[in-house]
Design a protein around this nucleic acid. Sequence first.
DNA 1: GAATAAGTGGGGAAATGTGGGAAAAGGGTT
DNA 2: AACCCTTTTCCCACATTTCCCCACTTATTC
Lengths: 148, 148
Amino acid sequence: MFQGAAQLNLDAKGRMAIPARHRDALLAPAEGRLVMTAHPHRCLLLYPAPAWEPIRAKILAAPSLETQSAMLRRLLVGFAADSEMDAAGRLLVPPELRRYAALEKEVWLVGQGSHFEIWSDAGWREQQEAIFALGDKLLPPGLESLTL
Amino acid sequence: MFQGAAQLNLDAKGRMAIPARHRDALLAPAEGRLVMTAHPHRCLLLYPAPAWEPIRAKILAAPSLETQSAMLRRLLVGFAADSEMDAAGRLLVPPELRRYAALEKEVWLVGQGSHFEIWSDAGWREQQEAIFALGDKLLPPGLESLTL
DNA sequence: GAATAAGTGGGGAAATGTGGGAAAAGGGTT
DNA sequence: AACCCTTTTCCCACATTTCCCCACTTATTC
């Protein structure tokens, strides 16, 4: 179960050092196999491969001539990249994904339960501002009963 | 299983160098026989021949006087071209398909599970903008249960 | 304060991508 | 029918990038 946000730096080669506390949890279920892909909200997703595969299967089962499923598939499957940490616990973020999410040097790795999200510094700040801006309208359908 | 997006350059002769990580997967099931054709969304499709043939059969079995199947058939079967990689792992994109998908120098090769899509740089960017424009309405019918 | 773990940077070998050239095939003209 | 010109295909060689590994600096813990 991944949680917590960490600010990290991409090095000149686009590598991201995963915080040591998350490494085992990422490697254990996956034998090291990780999958990175694009999220419609302009951030990236990082899954251990076993968690990603059922999602891919669902998306690939949708009709591919239908515009919306095709778009979703192009994004999620089209950008998916197999990935492994190097010996120093770093992940290489492929250039096309870096550009998609507008990642510069400073990025955020945000735990989301089954997976991580990766945000550009600017994107992550905007996301928080958007949350404040929503105000009372934040509670989504299906979560009306949520009390904190 | 093909996934991942790669930006490639067509050379002066219209050849496209397939990324090495995909070559084996393309050649293995097909003994090198590949099929390229046109997709209604104005991109190209690239299949290993064995994956293409059942699709062609389905299209050819559709009633030929019915306007929509006729159109689909003209596009998919009409544009289909057999193709093989050269010794350097490059694929020649036939001129008529290059024109159909408006391919210039920079193109994208996008993994879509059983096959690849090939996009012009401009087309691929428009595709992404269309996804952002959809916003919350992105989830297509049948995939409402998708959780990332 | 020392030792160990974590994060950062860089260098080099091997695989990959790119371009060009020569040979062969096809088509049109005399 | 033969020849020449154009187009295509195949192959070789070079430049580039990528990946992997090693070494150093910084932080943390005992």
